[in-house]
Design a binder for these strands. Sequence first.
DNA 1: TTGAATCACGAAAACAGTTTTCAAAATCGA
DNA 2: TCGATTTTGAAAACTGTTTTCGTGATTCAA
Lengths: 168, 168
Amino acid sequence: MAMETKDKNVDEKLVQEKEASFARFIQEQGLKTTRQRNTIVSVFFRMRGHISVEELLAEVKKVNPRIGYATVYRTLHLLVESGLVEERRFGDGLARYEGHSDVEHHDHMICLECGQIMEFFNPKLEALQEQLAEENNFQIYRHRLELYGACKDKDACAARAKKKGAQG
Amino acid sequence: MAMETKDKNVDEKLVQEKEASFARFIQEQGLKTTRQRNTIVSVFFRMRGHISVEELLAEVKKVNPRIGYATVYRTLHLLVESGLVEERRFGDGLARYEGHSDVEHHDHMICLECGQIMEFFNPKLEALQEQLAEENNFQIYRHRLELYGACKDKDACAARAKKKGAQG
DNA sequence: TTGAATCACGAAAACAGTTTTCAAAATCGA
DNA sequence: TCGATTTTGAAAACTGTTTTCGTGATTCAA
């Protein structure tokens, strides 16, 4: 069970590995290394959580204000193709991107009050899904499970909601 | 486990109950009964499966060609508000609408080859989710589980894929 | 290094799905 | 039936994303 914690810093060594891995991907594909791609990738991997294009662009612009939407979108697609990043959609109309966590696969609980997204993983759940697929003569490539609801810790939740409202 | 079967006819009695239920909803909300809404709702409840706006509009136009997108969208929102219909998104960018099945809640298996959508429900799965939420101090309002993969019956799957391709 | 071929960039336009606008038409209670 | 209010349909607007196109960067062979 991997919870997102706001005070956890990114693992610098891991980030650098990912950057190297992406650089390798770019080479393998016969694409070119550019300052913009490096900036975007570097910024992305140092952010935590489930990042929208707008959030990423805002951070990227702090480093290089001339980088625009198009390049961010294009680079995110490359990141997804490289397998280092996954695209998710939680039904609010925007794509969110997530660098692979330490955990290979995980599901999500989304609080509708404060917007917090918690990650979780449970082997029993996975096994049960496999079993159900089997019964239906179906082979699972991937799945997604999202629990929408609310934090039971109302104080912490309200505080997050307030903070979020103030920012955005 | 409720499989969608293409030859199953809609239950006329059930459809009429739903139409009546929607009419009641419209009244309660102080809205007006219109020919267009009746047409759209009537057509919708007589279709099966997971219906896109475009599919619905095409059917609606056979009855009344003057009805346009806007009214279909608006009526679908009303149907969702009334609780008679659920909106779903499977990640291909379009909303799909589903009249409540006999089963209160169900999950989906989506074949990426032929596009078939199978519905399923499993109480153990539901219970396990509740348990995990509990452990995380989280209260579930609703959830969604989608298994993406492929039919193991390759012949039937290929036939469906071909048919789908031919239609457009 | 230099040059040529290729690729990537950024701004803006295009695009797809959905929502809103607005003037005309329909509904419904008095 | 009248009149206030809602709904309609066509078109415009909107949102998130993708593509276009002219310019600029990167790569690699010479």
